[in-house]
Design a protein around this nucleic acid. Structure first.
Lengths: 132, 132
DNA sequence: CTGTATCCTTAGGGATACTG
DNA sequence: CAGTATCCCTAAGGATACAG
């Protein structure tokens, strides 16, 4: 994202400019689908983000209101949790087109067959954990 | 995307690394929701992409199989069209959180109330146009 | 353990002139 | 109209040492 000013008021552009870098979605994924919650946890993720980059992304995600920082670690905000449907769609899409995908077949099946239920269930669980 | 090798087989990562740059989704948006189909059309979009960048993104999107190039202009592939649900979710999310969003209220209302219907309708229309 | 601070590199992007 | 070709530049990312 070279240009810092908003390129347009298009909603797709808003999304791209808000979390369309190469690490934000990875961190949100961790907060949604894994038990990683702390700085050290995120560093342990398979993708091997650099320490300074992680710090920068965490700060950015706080600035745009997608996460907060508590004593227990980082937490999703409602705004961040509201990206769950979109991210599930991305997972479903990748599951369909990436032959090497690590997404469990059972999970992909569930997304395809019961997307709404999965969203409801996951939202409930995460809302409880994050106190939303 | 500094690292060119795949960072992991996580489906979220696959999506990020496939179209997670700052222009791919803008082009896909044009092919889904506007009548822009040609190089010149894309250049005319509000976001003002540079000519060389556009050419590079169009080539990339062809390489990853999201679009094709016909005499009539660029077209979505099935793989590209399959990103419609995710993009609609992003639009819905931006509509909710971006005060300045240019997304028409009527469209946002439709997405919220009848997402499945909207997807079906749009998919049908675009499938016909693109011959999928 | 949770970050900062540095230093460095490069891909991505921006501007613009040009070509078939 | 549909791109190429250049040149340039900076933000994003990577590596690693250090600090509280």
């Amino acid at each position: 994202m070279r240009r810092t000013e908003r390129r347009s008021d298009c909603p797709v552009n808003f999304a791209v400019q808000t979390f369309g870098d190469s690490w934000s979605l990875i961190i949100l994924r961790d907060l949604m689908f894994t038990d990683r919650r702390t700085y050290g946890d995120f560093l342990g993720a398979e993708e091997r983000i650099a320490t300074n980059v992680l710090a920068a992304r965490l700060e950015h995600l706080q600035n745009v209101g997608l996460i907060t920082h508590r004593d227990t670690g980082y937490a999703l905000t409602q705004k961040g949790l509201d990206l769950l449907p979109a991210i599930l769609d991305l997972i479903e899409w990748s599951g369909k087109y990436d032959k090497r995908t690590a997404a469990p077949r059972s999970f992909l099946a569930r997304v395809a067959r019961d997307r709404d239920g999965l969203i409801a269930e996951t939202t409930a669980r995460l809302s409880a954990e994050y106190g939303l």
